[in-house]
């Protein structure tokens, strides 16, 4: 009994007396690793922040949660829906998250066995084929657009099939109901191992791009700028820890510990996590130019409103731009 109360008192002393409460909406994915590391290694606490993590199942709700005020910060992949929200002055990008980068096997170009037999054997062969994706305006939708641009075929001549969820994409690809798809490595590699479908390339090698970002609401920047600064500082320490553990890989103990932390937060097998770790720029920088390119692409596809201004969406005062 006495021991317990002493433990409680110590715990009280350990947290800074004036810890400010804030919240972050996030997905249970390895790409959110820096956030989990910052939380678990005490970087947020060191900045006097008590961060409540709010978990969601898809990128869209993560962004909506920040717009609706359910969370003060969000970190996730960039979609057309995100830009439409941001374009209405509801969201600002303040730091980078994952990037598709050569050598990082994050998103796989997949081909159904049926299509493989029919001769679809490389990303260039995606031209004119059906393509399974989660939703219109999703990151998968953007990546097939990037691929078409790079390989010089017309994405409008493909049949883009929205299937709402990754499990639906898996079964559609398995059943040969779509010829092609882009799937996260955590799903793609086991599928290829079971020979349910073929991997014909990786988006990082083919079309590197700024996949994810940390963002907040303009109101936060206006009214609680200090909080945002502290949050970004802690986030950058999380990114640095991620970089050390998974990209520099100079300290095996740190790598093991980081993997443990990621496994705890994402509730995934360590092996699966290690196989699908995305590249994250070591100083949490992002490419504003890439953001502008994404907005222009969505506008050309009529998926983003013409009024969205890419310059208004990014704030480079917390983290300097890559460009």
């Amino acid at each position: 009994m006495k021991l317990l109360s002493i433990a409680a008192a110590v715990a009280l002393l350990a947290t800074p007396a004036m810890a400010e409460k804030t919240s972050l909406s996030v997905l249970k994915l390895a790409s959110s690793g820096p956030v989990f590391l910052a939380q678990d290694l005490g970087h947020f606490a060191a900045e006097g922040l008590e961060v409540e993590l709010k978990f969601f199942a898809a990128a869209q709700p993560v962004a909506v949660a920040v717009v609706s005020g359910d969370a003060e910060f969000g970190v996730t992949g960039l979609t057309a829906g995100f830009y439409n929200l941001a374009g209405k002055g509801a969201l600002k990008i303040i730091a980078g998250q994952s990037r598709e980068q050569p050598g990082y096997k994050l998103s796989a170009y997949m081909v159904s066995n049926k299509a493989w037999e029919a001769g679809v054997r490389s990303p260039a062969d995606f031209a004119g084929r059906s393509f399974g994706m989660t939703q219109v305006g999703s990151t998968f939708h953007y990546m097939v657009g990037l691929l078409a641009e790079k390989r010089g075929f017309d994405v409008a001549k493909m049949r883009l099939v929205p299937l709402q969820s990754i499990p639906n994409m898996v079964s559609a690809l398995q059943g040969g109901q779509v010829d092609t798809a882009i799937l996260p490595s955590t799903v793609a590699v086991p599928m290829a191992d079971r020979n349910d479908a073929k991997i014909v390339g990786w988006a990082g090698d083919e079309t590197p791009w700024q996949l994810g970002a940390l963002f907040t609401s303009p109101k936060m920047i206006d009214t609680k700028r200090a909080t945002v600064e502290r949050f970004v500082r802690a986030y950058k320490k999380g990114v640095a820890a991620y970089d050390l553990a998974f990209q520099k890989k100079t300290d095996q103990a740190a790598t093991d510990k980081a993997l443990d932390i990621l496994a705890k937060y994402t509730e995934q097998q360590k092996g699966a996590i290690a196989a699908g770790l995305p590249y994250i720029e070591p100083e949490a920088r992002f490419s504003a130019k890439d953001i502008a390119k994404q907005v222009a692409y969505w506008q050309a596809q009529k998926q983003a409103d013409a009024s969205v201004d890419a310059k208004e969406i990014v704030v480079t005062t917390f983290v300097p731009s890559l460009d």
């Binding site: 869209q60 962004a63 909506v64 979609t79 057309a80 829906g81 995100f82 439409n84 929200l85 939703q135 219109v136 305006g137 999703s138 049949r159 883009l160 099939v161 929205p162 299937l163 709402q164 639906n168 559609a172 109901q177 998926q303 983003a304 409103d305």
Partner: peptide
């Protein structure tokens, strides 16, 4: 129309939701 529909009122509503329009 959630699954694999290009056209349709339902598909339109879902897409609008996905795009936050």
């Amino acid at each position: 129309e959630m699954i694999g529909a290009e056209f349709g009122v339902g598909a339109f509503i879902l897409t609008a939701g996905n795009l936050m329009r």
